[in-house]
Structure formats: C-alpha cells, structure tokens
Nucleic acid binder design. Structure first.
Lengths: 219, 219, 219, 219
DNA sequence: GATGAATGAGCGTTCATTCAT
DNA sequence: AATGAATGAACGCTCATTCAT
C-alpha cells in the first residue's frame, strides 16, 4: 500500500465512517464534543466515558491511549476537511473544463466547505486547536496539503494566470491569500462570531467579490 | 479613573512592563515559552518553576493560581496586540489627516503589527489558543475590540466609503475582510509556515495590493 | 420512609456494617486507628493508604474527599454510640415495666455503653475530638440527641420524679448530672487513665451509688 | 531550680503574664483564638500572623516552631487551670481550718474555676483538644495533677472521710466522681451548650447538692 | 527586632491506564 | 466485548520554616 493508497483509504474511511460498533461511535461522538469544548488536555477519559455511557475501560479497549483517540478523530477530520477542496466532483468538473472562471471555482469550493463545516463545527475546532500542539497532526496536515491540495491548486492558479484571468503574482501568494480569505470567513462565521446575524449567501458572494476585485472601486 | 484611563493605564503597564521582581520576570518568561509550546492545560507548574529557576512555591506567591498566571500573561498581551491597531501614533495621524489613502493606513497598521508579532510569537500563540477555552479571556478581547478597535475602524471605513475610496459594502464585511487578510497573513507568516522563505516587504505589499484590488486583473 | 425508619435503617446499617468491599473495610479500619491517634487534620491520606495496604487513589474511589471518609466513620459512630442509650431492648423493658428502679435502669445503660466503648475506644476518641471542629458532626449529634435520647430520658425522669423515686430538680439538671457522671466515668476509664488498674464492676457500682446517693453518708 | 520551683515559676509566669512584647501578646492572642476555633493542626502560621497583624517571620522569632507556640499557650494554661484547684487562697483557708464542710470546699472550688473558665473558654478548648494528641502536654498535665492536685485532694478527702463527713469509698473514686461532676458541669456549661439559658448560681448549687446527696430523695 | 520573599516537602486529589471478572 | 475497581505518578497548591535586608 503506497502513500497514495493509504491516503485514499483514509479518505474512504473518513467519508464512510466504516465499521464502528455502537459503543465506539458513542465514544467518538462524546470525545469530539468534549475535546471541542474544553480542549484535549483538559478533558479526562472518565468524562468521555460518562458522556458516552460506557465504562472507562471500554475506551481503552478501542483506543490504546487517550492520544490515539484524539488521532482517530483528527486525522480523518483533516482529510474530510481538506481533501474535498479539490476532490469534490463539481469542483473537479469546473476545474477540468475550465469553462468557468476562477470566481466560479472558488464559489463552489467555499460553498462546499461552508456546508461541511456547518455540520462539523466541533471537529474544526479540535483540528485547529490540537494541530498546534501535536507534531504528528501537523505533519498529517502538511503531508495532505502538500500532496493533495497544493498541486491541484497550483495547477489551477497557474492555468488561470496563463489565461490572464488572475494577476501574475507568485502562485504561493495567490493561494495563501485565497485560502486565508476562505478560511478566515469560515472561522469568523462559525467560531468567532457564530451568534451574529449572518446573511450567509450574501456574505459568501461579497467575500468572493472582495477576493476577486478587492475593496477599491473602479479598480 | 474612567474606562478610557483604565485602558490607557493597562496599555502603559503593558508597554513598559512595570515593576516586576527578577523572579517574577523569570516566571513569566518561562510560562510564556512553555504555554506557547504545549498549551496551558498541558503545562505543569513544576515545569515552569524548573525552567524559571525558582521553587514551585514561588510561582504561587506571585500568582494565586495557575490560571491567574495565564491571565497575567494573556490580558496585557491582548491589549498590547490589539489596541495599537488604531492607537499607534502614525496611524492616528494618517487617519486624522486623511491626506493618504486607506491603502496607506493599512500598510502602516500591518507593518506595525507585523513587527510586534515578530517579537512576540509565543504570546500570540497563547492568545489564540487559550482564548478559545477561557471565557474571561474571550470577554476581555471582545470588550477591547468593541470599545477600542471597532469604532475607529468603523469610522475610518465609513469616511473612506463616503469619499468613494472604497466600495460600498457593509462596513462589517469590509472590516472583517480586511482583518482576515491581515491576521491571516501574519498567522501564516509566523505560526503556520515560519520556516518558509519569506520576502516580507514584498509579501506585505502584495497582500495589501490583493486586499485593495483583488486578484483579478484590470477589473 | 419516615424519619424513624431512616434512623432505624442507619442503626441497622451501623450494627451490621453492611456491604463493604475488603479494601473499603481496610481503609476504614486504618483511618479509624490513625484519626484516633493523631487527629483528622494531622492525618494524611497517604498514611491511611499505606496502613490499609491500598493505593492512595483507592481511598478516593470510595470516598470523594478525606472529609467524606471522616463523616463515613463518625456519623454511624455517633448513632451506634448514642441511640442504644434507650433503644437497647433490656433498657426498654426496664423502663416500660418500671418494675425496677432508676438505679437499675442506669446500671443497664452504663453496662451496655461500657461494653460498647470497650470495643470502640478509637471511635469514641474520634467522635469527641472531631465533633468540636466539624459543624455537620455536631449537628448530627444534636439532632440524634434531641430526637432520640432526650425525649425518652425526659419521659423516664419525669415519671420517676412523679413516683417520688428521684428528687424534684429540673429534668434537664438531673439528665445533665446523670450523663456527666456516666460519660465522665467512661472517658476516665478508657481515655484518660486506661492504664490504671480498674475493678470495673466495683467502680460501676460505686459510680451509680454516688450518682444515686451522693458522697455524704446518712444524708 | 528544682521541680517545685520550676512549677512555681511557671505558675507565676502564668498568673502574671510576664514580659511579653506587644507583638508577642498579639501573636498569642491570635493563636489562642484560631487554635480554639479550628484546632492546632488545621491552623496555619500565616493565618495567625495575619490575625495578629505581624509578619510570618515574626512568629518564628519568638517561637522556634509552631509546636513551641502551642506549648507556650497550653502549658501555662494547664497550670492556670489546674493549680488553683487547691492553690486558691480561700480554698486553702477553708481546707486548713476545716471549720467548714466538704460541700463548702467544693463550692469555693467550683465557683473559682467557673469564673476562670468563663474568661478563658478558648484556652480550655485548646487544652482539652490538644492534650489528646501531644504526649508532652499530657505529661505536663499528669505531672501537675499528680504533684499538685492529687496529694492535696487526697489529703482533704482522707481527712473528711476520717471525720465521717463523706462516705468511705476509695479516695480515688471519690476524687474522680467529684472532678467528673465539676468538669462535666463546666464543659457542658461553656463548651457543649453555651447558648442554652443557664441560671448559673442555681445550677452550681444543684450540682453540688447532687454531688453530695445524689438524686435519690430521703437518702 | 521585624520583615516578607523564597523554599521544597508534602498535602489532597485527579488522571490515564491495567486487568481480573 | 465490556466492565469498573485498582493503581501510583503527577498535579496544583499550601505549609512551616529560613534568611537577607
């Protein structure tokens, strides 16, 4: 099984949530909720067990250590969060046909990821928090980003630049700015100000317009 | 002492790092470093004491609890990080005279905050991480943002919009997009990819250009 | 379950020492011994654990706090010590039939409590010592005394006074003097001078005789 | 300085509260109050220092250890509490002249000790509590009792017995019963039910009458 | 004499993990 | 597979005591 396959496997596992016993599902569910609320380090396994309605020992039957439980949540989480940036079927089509603009590509991506995050806020919170403290999670993320996201993104940007549809800045800068804008919006929307009143469709549109045309008029 | 004065006091205290005994300084220094590296919850007071070269009891002579130590680090940190967004003298001048553009205002802000973060990376990391888990820190931040940053930002954006220098989107959207772009750049630069090769001046320029004009040419 | 039943339940629980795991029994045993010897506050849980032959954590699995451990010892102890003053079957009989004198009632009580204390010296010591510092224990004791001991004692004394068998002093004074004499004897016997040579039967007799007739002859 | 002299010295020291700096007096005062309230082991020196209004170090300048502070309180306390049982001038007179009865001797003693305790409740509490846990205090007490109290008490009882004024029981029993009655009354009065309504003169009288004549009439 | 910062041992308690059932 | 009692290391924190000022 080469690395590609391994990732593919993880993706499938992630998307389809393979065979989990009901207890295991309960444990994961409880752990995600509490990890998101208090952070991994501040969460006790007994708390997870209680919330999941299982005995403490049961957790350790399925996950050798507390850390393995975290990784079992975060690693598939990273994949489910990042890979669809370019793996999504619509996106692929748009991108392959290039019949549509960069703007439309971004709109698809942002809409798709918006919906995913909307249903997985706690997971996103855990990923952001814990990646900062666990080297192996950071590696996981970087590896996926470098292998799956960046090349496609780079390819797209390069092509659009060649077609004269986006400015001729270094791809890395354009990608960074694009991702910063998308992620910044999503984090503001769901983590920083989730309780503000949002007109989501309008705000997505405006965000993409600002991303494409900036905030200076007539420019 | 009214609220303004109090904040001013905090800012001064912050900038000048008032009267700290040498041991207290050592403790803060050590705590900042370890909190940033492993997170507050995963850091033990004995570890801080060892790194600071003091007895564990000494920490508790200066800070009643471990949490108080965290707050003693983060609260002034938030102030030092956020208030200068608009309290900086140059920025104030630029803004008052409006002899220069929004672009130049942003350039001043981004340069100023860039330099601050450069010298305080661990502090930034702690602020971002721990605000997520400690309600009082979130409140601190929100209070400062709402009282000190947002009104000035709003005033500036409203004026520039009236002058036709920036697009007529809701101020909240423009502010969010602007901050997302600045913060996203700084976080990418110092926390996510600190070891990449960065031409900082060039990247700051490019970031502001993208922020102002978007990534679509001739538009 | 009304109050009566509840107390009865506690008494039974007390007398039969319901279901205790062996480790729990070991912990109680060790705690009683050390609390009696050094006092609650001066006893460390690690010491108890060592003497009980269990891990320190095991104590806290059975008793949430050190204080809860104390209360688990003292509260049933108070009940076992006080309630039988008048709940004892023989005493009840004597008292009901009144075929016998106050003297004989006291003799039964003193003999019965003497034997109980003989087997529970450390428990008595803990009760006396700790009731002074823990309001809830004092309350426990007062509640039992007021509800279970005093009314019966009062009834008996009133009856015997009416029958002209004891002097017409206020019942409270007679009860206080009686208890003081009994308790004073038992404490002297077991706590203050346990190592003196005692002819217990003779001393009990003499104590009751002094209690009944005073120390002045022919009077 | 032989033992007698030493005791005499202690007694004087006790009665006259020799040369104490004001700070030292404050410390003793604070310590007595807190030791009585929470017990020696549960009292921290910092608490004493705070209540006394001195620095923590100051306590240790006057008393090498916390325990020495306790002993400085309790040892003179024991003396002041016990020695006057027979050292009191009036008592001495009564006893020497034997112009009066055992009853009157007791009345003098009980009145005298009643007044002393009334002004020194916390001290009494500390003595009772801490004698149970500190061997040296118990020794102190026993030594004083055996050397100063018992011989005089014994002498008196023997004499009164010879004169046919009290029953011919062993002196030890009579002394124990007498002390138990006096101490039991005082402890009930000041420690167990201090807040009940007491007609002190009446109760002292009744106590002595019960002590002398028992509770059985016509006897 | 008086201070109070500093100490480090020891406290009560929690925790992730093990294992006999 | 699931349990939950048991573990003992480690935690945050307090304490009596020391000592330079």
């Amino acid at each position: 099984m080469d690395k590609q396959d391994y990732l593919q496997h993880l993706i499938n596992a992630g998307e389809e949530d393979v065979q989990l016993t009901p207890k295991q599902a309960k444990i994961l569910e409880a752990a995600i909720e509490i990890f998101a609320e208090k952070g991994y380090a501040a969460t006790s396994t007994s708390e997870i067990a209680k919330k999941a309605g299982v005995a403490e020992g049961t957790i350790f039957r399925h996950y050798k250590t507390k850390k393995e439980l975290l990784i079992s949540i975060v690693t598939p989480g990273i994949i489910k969060l990042t890979v669809p940036f370019f793996a999504d079927q619509f996106v692929s089509e748009v991108f392959k046909e290039r019949s549509e603009s960069y703007e439309q590509l971004l709109r698809k991506i942002i809409r798709n990821r918006f919906e995913f995050v909307q249903k997985n806020v706690p997971l996103l919170k855990i990923i952001i928090q814990e990646m900062a403290f666990h080297e192996e999670l950071k590696q996981s993320f970087q590896s996926i980003f470098i292998k799956k996201i960046f090349p496609k993104f780079d390819e797209a940007v390069t092509q659009f630049k060649k077609d004269g549809l986006i400015v001729d800045y270094p791809s890395s800068s354009i990608i960074r700015f694009t991702m910063t804008t998308i992620i910044g919006f999503i984090i503001t929307r769901f983590l920083i100000l989730p309780e503000a009143e949002w007109d989501d469709d309008e705000e997505i549109d405006r965000t993409i317009r600002m991303l494409m045309h900036g905030i200076q008029p007539d420019s």
